[in-house]
Amino acid sequence: MIRALRWLFFAVVARLIVLVVLGLNVRHRERLPTSGPAIIVGNHNSHLDTLVLMTLLPLGLLPRVRPVAAADYFLGKGLLSWFAINIVGILPLERRPVRGMDPLAACSSALTQGDILILYPEGTRGEPEELGAFKSGIAHLAARCPEAQTIPVYMKGLGKALPKGEGLLVPFFCDVFVGEALRCDGNRRTYMASLQAAYEALAQEAGDRRPLRVTAMPPT
């Protein structure tokens, strides 16, 4: 029942919002993954980001797609929490883990099962249409699951359509640029550097010049 509702939501409501109300110009669609395990990395400006990334993938992959979302924001708020868990199918992530617990355990076990994760390394939506610093948690995850490919996706315009703190959706066409897949060979620093380079190239292709900062990597 819930699975049917989830399918219906993404087949009808999400596609109506993303493709008709908004409208997408997708560059390099062929670079999207056709199967898991994979990590789709997005820049985060709006709640719409997740709807857009999930609409890019075929409906057949829907049961495999899990957006990683902040546990403190999405869990425990009644209806929002029910919707996030059951319909969107989020994988909750503890942004401030307590000592001794492994915040990435759920993510890496999902990847081991062959799931496709959607991850926002900025950690938060931040200022509209600004690219914030990437946190290095993604490198830890990619290093644990070397078989998972990472696909960077740069989205532009969604922070105009529905920025943080606004409830009113204003239609705009949005641009989506899909980058080439990366893999982590175990070295987290080179992985972070190539992810950063991929984002800079995509931002340049989109006509944006945004310096990207990477949060300092803890000593390994």
């Binding site: 409208g23 509209p128 315009g157 105009k160 920025p163 606004e166 009113l168 204003v170 239609p171 705009f172 066409f173 949005c174």
Partner: peptide, 19 residues
């Protein structure tokens, strides 16, 4: 109209006006 408004620079404060 959507294509036009996506092309031109708009002010963030005008979201409701655009609506």
């Amino acid at each position: 109209l959507k294509e036009y408004l996506s092309l031109i620079p708009t002010r963030r404060s005008d979201r409701r006006v655009l609506f």
